[in-house]
């Protein structure tokens, strides 16, 4: 072990113990010394994990590896435990077995739903993967899941993503045409003048059409078709930029909010 590593580890261990002692002594509303010790440990441990994850921004290190592996292990088990209690005990058992309900102390629904015997059977077929010879039968369960959801997606996306988007693009390109004088009377983008109305509708219609042309796979993007496709990708890039800028500012606003809280409410630096 390198000397610097040893020093860092030592410092972290000392800080951990110091924080543990401090947090134990200042633990609020506890009944016994043991409770205070546990509370002190848990809070310090949470702080340690937080800093360990943060340290990844500098570089990979043993503390990050520790926190990462612990996080992965705990969260995988968490999902499994939750699935067991809420789905199997909460949803399946009350519909199929009075005995199981008795074991897990949940209320039986009153009748045996034979339909609910199918998913556990498919689930067990899925587990057959673990046997060297039974792998093929697990595909029945996969087929059920994939088939169900493919069928689910087929018409539903055609409705929301497709037909409604198309009819939303039927925009009049000559809004209340009253001659050129009226057309050029107000050019500001924020104004509700006719120029802006027509320009905006034109951008939407041409943007949608050229955006679609960009996604043509079986035609060479040359000539007029190529120009339309290039216009399409420009519109796409403007959109990606807008979406990017918007999200960046949203996240930075959150950060500024946290910093303002620290500076103002906690340290009293800004407004005092």
């Amino acid at each position: 072990m390198r000397k610097s590593t040893m020093i860092v580890t030592l410092v972290v261990v000392l800080l951990f113990i110091a924080s543990w002692i401090f947090k134990t002594m200042t633990a609020p509303e506890v009944d016994s010394t043991f409770d205070a010790l546990t509370q002190g440990f848990l809070v310090t441990f949470a702080a340690f994990l937080t800093l360990a994850i943060m340290s990844f921004l500098y570089q990979d290190n043993p503390f990050y590896k520790f926190a990462e592996h612990l996080y992965v292990g705990v969260s995988a088990a968490y999902a499994m435990t939750l699935g067991f209690w809420s789905t199997l005990v909460g949803n399946l058992f009350p519909r199929v077995s009075e005995t199981l309900c008795g074991w897990f102390q949940v209320e039986f629904s009153g009748q045996h739903d034979w339909q609910f015997l199918i998913p556990p059977i498919l689930g067990i077929l899925l587990l057959m993967r673990l046997s060297p010879k039974g792998g093929w039968i697990s595909r029945w369960a996969l087929a059920f899941i994939v088939g169900t959801t493919a069928g689910l997606n087929l018409p539903r996306f055609l409705r929301s993503d497709f037909i409604e988007q198309i009819s939303g693009t039927f925009l009049p390109l000559l809004v209340d045409w009253e001659g050129f004088g009226h057309f050029f009377s107000n050019l500001s983008l924020s104004a509700s003048g006719q120029f802006v109305a027509i320009l905006s509708n034109f951008v939407i219609v041409s943007g949608v059409i050229c955006g679609l042309i960009y996604f043509f796979f079986s035609k060479e993007h040359k000539g007029a078709f190529g120009s339309a496709s290039r216009y399409g990708i420009w519109i796409l890039m403007i959109t990606f930029g807008a979406s990017f800028g918007y999200t960046v500012m949203g996240r930075i606003s959150l950060l500024v909010g946290r910093l303002t809280f620290l500076m103002d409410d906690w340290l009293g630096i800004i407004s005092g």
Binding site: I166, F170, L174
Partner: peptide, 24 residues
């Protein structure tokens, strides 16, 4: 199927153009 998708897009463009005419 890729070619089918392209024809789908062509139909979308055509129906949008007709729709604009209809709006007019």
């Amino acid at each position: 199927t890729l070619k089918g998708q392209d024809y789908g897009k062509a139909m979308v463009i055509a129906s949008i153009l007709i729709g604009i005419g209809a709006a007019l």
